[in-house]
Simulated assay, not measured.
Amino acid sequence: MKTETPQRFLSLDVFRGLTVAGMILVNNPGSWSYVYSPLEHAPWHGCTPTDLVFPFFLFAVGNAMSFSMKKYEVLGNGAVIQKILKRTLLIFVIGLLLNWFPFVKWSDGLLVGKPFSGLRILGVLPRIALCYGVAAFIIHYLKDKGAFVAAGILLLGYWFLLIAFGTGDPYSLEGYAGLPLDKLILGENHMYKGEGVPFDPEGILSTLPAICNVIFGYLAGVFIQQQGKTYEMLSRLMITGCILIFTALCWDLVFPINKKIWTSSYVLYTVGIALLLLSVLMYVVEFKGRTAWTVLFTPFGKNPLFIYFLAGVVVKLYLLARLPEGQNLYSWLYTHIFQPLAGNMNGSLLFAIFHVAFFWLVGWWMDKKKIYIRV
């Protein structure tokens, strides 16, 4: 216990907080018709700044595991399994309930219950749960080197599965091998339909490579703790990030970088950028000691899953609340406050920034009160 405090790097908390702030920013524009292109997902192949947010969060989950898994070393195998399964199930159920929330919807002017038959099963929190659970078991049983090998097998194996079982262009929506699998296991009614057809960007098959974002985040955390605050550690972290980005761009020529089917090249690309960003944060915070600005992000990093969950709940309540004009509260806030104040595009952005600031205040208050909700 006495070595935990010096090992805890503030920059890792900042990285996690920055990621949560980014998730709130990109998920809550005032209007989806007015969004600056860097705050939108790539239509299919490619990667925008927004496409970095979710894999960064998984990478941050792995970072946190590099600390928490040490505590499991003193536990028996059965206790470790129980802890991993309990946390995985809890996060998955919370995600499922968030998808279902607020459990009612408007129909012909009346509030009616939202049936389970149309509930989306997967999503952001369920994917976090599955990636955490599988990565935790891999790390527990195979240890660090074995986890690295397992990640390589998952990335190459996923590529093989897409080629072997895909149809036509295996990297297209129509030819993607994970689509029929999701339809078979989940059913079309329980899938995301944001593409205009049943297709889940957090589907079953694409969860396999996403597990690697957690594993690599864990390995990066272990490396940082083992090496300590040295320039050698920092330089090796940056070099590794550059190598991964270069490898991903080369792989992109035959296996396109794509978030929606979470390609293996996308994993290497996002992990590489995460390492570079983390290196910069560590240099500024740990080496130069410039920490005053970190308060902008650490409140998010202290309660990441809770704040993300709370943001989802608040937005869903906005959409449920109906005003006399017939608008929901979400639309009313944009059209009556932010759009008149700053125009279409900037008003939409200002709406998102306002909510980042609001949830920052929530996180700041919780931190001041020493309220930390662990899942």
Score class of each variant (00 low, 15 high):
8 R>S: 09
17 G>H: 06
18 L>N: 01
33 S>P: 08
38 P>H: 12
40 E>H: 10
41 H>C: 13
49 P>D: 09
55 P>G: 11
55 P>W: 05
58 L>M: 08
67 F>D: 07
68 S>D: 08
68 S>Q: 10
70 K>M: 15
70 K>A: 15
71 K>V: 12
74 V>I: 07
76 G>D: 07
76 G>F: 05
76 G>A: 02
77 N>I: 06
77 N>M: 05
81 I>Q: 14
82 Q>C: 11
90 L>S: 04
92 F>E: 01
93 V>L: 06
100 W>S: 03
106 W>V: 11
108 D>G: 14
108 D>L: 09
109 G>P: 11
109 G>W: 05
111 L>N: 10
116 F>V: 09
116 F>R: 04
118 G>T: 10
122 L>W: 13
125 L>A: 08
127 R>D: 08
129 A>I: 12
129 A>Q: 13
132 Y>L: 12
132 Y>N: 12
132 Y>I: 10
137 F>E: 03
137 F>D: 03
138 I>N: 03
143 K>P: 04
148 F>K: 09
148 F>N: 08
149 V>A: 12
151 A>S: 01
151 A>L: 03
153 I>E: 02
156 L>C: 04
157 G>E: 05
159 W>S: 09
159 W>P: 00
161 L>H: 10
162 L>T: 13
162 L>G: 15
171 Y>L: 10
172 S>P: 05
174 E>N: 14
182 D>L: 09
185 I>V: 15
186 L>V: 07
188 E>D: 15
192 Y>I: 05
198 P>W: 09
199 F>N: 02
202 E>M: 09
203 G>S: 15
203 G>Y: 14
207 T>N: 07
209 P>F: 09
209 P>L: 06
211 I>Y: 08
213 N>W: 05
215 I>R: 03
215 I>N: 11
218 Y>C: 04
226 Q>G: 04
227 Q>W: 10
233 M>T: 05
234 L>E: 03
236 R>D: 04
238 M>T: 10
245 I>H: 04
246 F>Y: 02
246 F>W: 07
247 T>F: 06
250 C>K: 02
252 D>N: 14
257 I>G: 00
257 I>L: 02
261 I>W: 02
262 W>V: 01
269 Y>L: 06
270 T>M: 09
272 G>A: 00
273 I>K: 08
273 I>H: 09
275 L>C: 11
277 L>P: 06
277 L>D: 02
278 L>Y: 12
281 L>S: 04
281 L>A: 08
282 M>Q: 07
282 M>N: 10
284 V>E: 11
288 K>R: 13
289 G>I: 04
292 A>D: 13
294 T>H: 02
299 P>V: 03
306 F>I: 06
307 I>C: 12
312 G>W: 12
314 V>G: 01
319 L>D: 03
320 L>S: 02
323 L>K: 06
323 L>N: 08
334 Y>G: 01
334 Y>M: 04
336 H>C: 11
342 A>Y: 15
344 N>V: 03
344 N>H: 13
347 G>D: 00
349 L>G: 07
363 G>R: 13
375 V>C: 12
